[in-house]
Design a protein around this nucleic acid. Structure first.
Length: 303
DNA sequence: GCCCAGGTGAAGC
DNA sequence: GCTTCACATGGG
């Protein structure tokens, strides 16, 4: 871990603790707003969010990221892991195929990273993501956290924040209560999956040690979890580098950039992705996703 | 009104 | 193995 400085601040009467991580090639804005995590807000001159039970403010300063929390933090390893601050991005991007679409996607968002998130929060979030725009996913999750998450102390200038609700807590809700959080038909899936985990019938912590295919198979047994949601969790929470979420944007990217005049099924494209993009296919996928959303935001209205 | 959104599951062939 | 459809809700 790159520990450059540690200081304590006193703003108002809240004790703040800060840590600065040295980073190379880290685009914090692209990373936090690229549809992997849904709770980060740009306020003033920094990003406000919640990681686990910590309120966190992140600010980018050239070759470093400064993090502030409310409570004193004896060990910052959890944050370094979340941010993947120690990863050498060049080691990843050099494994990408040397073709025109990848060159363009990497050039368009240099410094885009994959986070390493909590499996339950990631799983629940992507169950809620199906056929929803990212802005709406953020709204649903904000409501869910406000109503069922544990209240947390926030830093100065921020409103009361909440932890992401535990599976145990959501298992005690009703489908009607979840539907009231605007999640529609996804409520049934989220409730059923929360119950499977709260009952101890499904162990998220055991997936990390499995081969990726076995972990994917376990996840897709959960209600509301198909190939795409499973791959999001495998990639964004467990860090399986070959997991390749194939959503409508990446589907469009592959069809337009690699198969412009052929009709290719998603099953074929999953196989193509596994063979074409190398050992870090999931990372390549995130670059393609972000590239399509930022450079061709209206691609879905053409053709 | 229309179509679309970081899809899934069930039913039909 | 496919293809089609329902499923809630909100943005453009």
């Amino acid at each position: 871990m790159n520990l450059c400085s540690l200081r304590n601040e006193f703003e108002s009467d809240v004790a703040m603790t800060a840590m600065t991580f040295a980073v190379n090639d880290y685009d914090l804005a692209a990373t936090l707003s690229s549809g992997q995590a849904f709770r980060w807000r740009w306020v003033g001159d920094g990003w406000l969010g919640v990681i686990g039970t910590h309120w966190v403010r992140l600010r980018e300063n050239g070759a470093s990221i400064t993090a502030e929390t409310v409570e004193p933090v004896p060990d910052w390893a959890w944050l370094a892991k979340y941010l993947q601050a120690d990863l050498d991005l060049a080691d990843v991007t050099r494994t990408f195929p040397d073709d025109e679409p990848m060159r363009a996607a990497v050039a368009a968002s240099r410094g885009l990273r994959l986070l390493r998130q909590d499996p339950w929060e990631c799983l629940a979030s992507f169950i809620l993501s199906s056929t929803k725009q990212i802005v709406q996913i953020q709204q649903i999750i904000a409501l869910l956290c406000e109503r069922y998450g544990e209240p947390l102390a926030a830093g100065p200038g921020d409103a009361l924040v909440h932890a992401f609700p535990t599976a145990d807590r959501l298992a005690q809700t009703t489908e009607a209560e979840l539907r009231a959080c605007k999640m529609g038909f996804r409520a049934k899936y989220l409730l059923a999956t929360a119950r499977r985990i709260a009952d101890g019938k499904f162990h998220l912590t055991r997936l990390q040690a499995l081969p990726v295919e076995a972990a994917r198979g376990a996840l897709t047994d959960l209600p509301g979890v198909g190939r795409k949601v499973a791959d999001c969790v495998l990639l964004f929470a467990y860090g399986f580098p070959s997991a390749f979420p194939l959503d409508v944007w990446v589907l469009k990217a592959l069809r337009q950039l690699y198969f412009p005049r052929r009709r290719v099924s998603t099953a074929r494209l999953n196989k193509f992705a596994a063979g074409h993009f190398g050992p870090n296919a999931g990372y390549a996928q995130q670059y393609l996703f972000h590239y399509m959303r930022t450079k061709h935001p209206h691609a879905n209205t053409q053709n």
